[in-house]
Design a protein around this nucleic acid. Structure first.
Lengths: 224, 224
DNA sequence: CAGTGGTCTAGACCACGTG
DNA sequence: ACGTGGTCTAGACCACTGC
């Protein structure tokens, strides 16, 4: 088996608590270690992660318990993906060698010898309804060569985020006129614009994006 | 010493990397364990948390490195507290036995035999400027008796969050007229209203709150 | 080959809650 | 007195990197 034991145990526990009530106590760490023929530290690591992900909670000197099902989700901004029908319509795609000051500042680009920047604009539909408009500015040099022609890979933020860090700002505004029609909004509708910068582990900014969200379909939700 | 060794080590490392450059390699886990007279697993635990918090990153078979300083912050909504001068002005405080439908739904209150609810409204000032207006609805039964008369304890969300889970929604809107003046905003200014529900580990909702943020001073920012 | 992080073991002691 | 989670130790093997 190449998958680590603690991950196997994690999945076993995850399955077993499906049949349990919220706030029901689970087996003790020692009992689990014994039953699954693993050391207690390995079981603890599995439980540690399940606690971190909101599936379980611990009470000192009492035991470990199944968390309320409504808490079984982690803080992720990209909320969709559950059973929703998500579609992307690319409405713009080009490579630039000059960009607006705003973009070059956010990506901390050099004044001269500007690198090439991929700019893409797409509409995200959720269950056939327009949900948000996203504008991406991506440093061409950071795209793996084999992905360069696959828009889906290119614009799937999740495939980058595991090795990178994203910081986001939420900015209130009136929907820009040019996007009002696409989002099927009145021209004076307040929306949230999300501005994000993705950096690799060395701190280099390589994606700048702005997303204009429909206020009704795309309520941004996070859990701590 | 009652503070765990792994926390002491965490702080030692945190101090030592202040004098290092970004992407500079740090001592190996074994070397640290040796120098600090701890086992490697204990050192690992300290490093694990520092990686989780964005201070360090690891490269398999290579070493552990100092992360870029701009990544040294974790996803917290309550951004202030650094060096900012934060003040709270309580502008309303009472105990209710009937609440609007909106609140009773969010807190999942019973139809009859309504529990008492504490309602508080306060203005948060940051460096003497109004930053946001917060409305809290708190289940009286969840307040520890000794805190009941200390507004600061009562309304310090951080003192609850360690044992609870908060979920938030960000909703765009035009600033409500009754708050426009307090926030020093034009009456047609778009803002973000943050709606939050805090649940204890058993899943019971006990705080409902709404925060109306000034768009300029309180840009909500998160890191993943 | 030596050194790294990733995983794992089989013990150990502690503080605390409940019977 | 016993069981719980919280912490800690001193080893171990693996896959991989760089010299």
């Amino acid at each position: 088996m190449s998958t680590p034991i603690y991950l196997q145990i994690k999945n076993i526990i995850k399955e077993e608590i499906l049949n349990k009530q919220s706030n029901e106590v689970i087996e003790s760490e020692r009992a689990l270690a014994n039953r699954l023929s693993a050391s207690r530290m390995t079981v603890r690591r599995a439980i540690d992660e399940l606690v971190e992900e909101g599936y379980l909670y611990r009470k000192k000197n009492k035991g470990t318990f199944v968390a309320d099902k409504t808490l079984w989700k982690k803080s992720t901004i990209e909320q969709h993906t559950y059973r929703d029908n998500i579609e992307y319509h690319l409405i713009n795609f080009d490579v630039k060698f000059t960009v607006k000051k705003e973009v070059s500042e956010k990506l901390e680009l050099p004044q001269s010898n500007l690198p090439s920047i991929i700019r893409a604009v797409r509409v995200v539909y959720k269950n056939k309804k327009p949900q948000k408009i996203e504008e991406f500015f991506i440093l061409r040099s950071h795209i793996k060569e084999k992905n360069i022609n696959k828009f889906d890979k290119l614009l799937d933020l999740n495939s980058y985020l595991s090795e990178s860090v994203m910081s986001q700002k939420f900015i209130p505004m009136i929907v820009p006129i040019k996007y009002a029609q696409t989002l099927k909004l009145a021209i004076d509708q307040p929306i949230i614009m999300t501005e994000g910068i993705v950096r690799d582990t060395s701190g280099m900014a390589y994606i700048y994006y702005k997303a204009y969200s429909h206020p009704k379909y795309d309520t941004i939700e996070t859990t701590f």
